[in-house]
Design a protein around this nucleic acid. Structure first.
Lengths: 97, 97
DNA sequence: ATAATATATGAATACTTGTTCATATATTCA
DNA sequence: TGAATATATGAACAAGTATTCATATATTAT
């Protein structure tokens, strides 16, 4: 048993919420290893740039991705290695589930 | 970049969805290390047994918890160690975020 | 300055989800 | 058998969410 404050429980739930959508999961899978522009992501995901941009905002707010602006493009990458680790650990669970 | 089928993306999102609610996070935090009955969980969480039971069903379906019936009680525990690892990895991210 | 391109944002809508309440099932005890 | 206890389930409602569409901001090129 791990003692959690209500605040930490909410923050943890918010973190996992950020990963709880297939579009965001696919965005993260594309960002593992390199950075990509919004348009590149939208093309590969077959989503509108607007939808991708909305999702990226959520990921940014949870510090899962970071943005780097270059000219008129914005390149997104994973914010830290926790993200890829959560991703691959989750994938493990799904595969041996 | 990790190549994901759409099915796997959906399954991963479903896994994280199962962890995306503060009540379920608190349930899991209570189950790390030991098993607990539905009533014990409900008491500690200050939730109705019905609400806890509904949540446990979702966790069971995602293979995050398992049920052991003993008499008229049902004792729940974490299904495998992936769960606790996802939990503590998430907690890490929240704390050093 | 104007046009074109890349991204972000607000509002609206359709869809999903967590809880409550009432009820059902299962088990034990008298 | 009948009463009591523990858990599960279905329906319903409120609250949250992902996408679309229209529009806004920012940057570059002419």
């Amino acid at each position: 048993m791990i003692k959690l404050t209500e605040l930490k429980a909410i923050q943890l739930a918010e973190l996992f919420s950020a990963l709880s959508d297939a579009s965001r999961i696919r965005i993260i899978s594309l960002l593992i290893g390199d950075e990509k522009s919004v348009r590149a992501l939208a093309d590969e995901l077959d989503m509108t740039e607007s939808a991708v941009s909305h999702q990226l905002r959520g990921l940014r707010q949870m510090h899962l991705v970071r943005a780097r602006k270059s000219g008129r493009q914005v390149f997104y990458s994973l914010d830290d290695d926790h993200v890829a680790r959560l991703f691959t650990l989750g994938l493990d669970h799904v595969q041996h589930g």
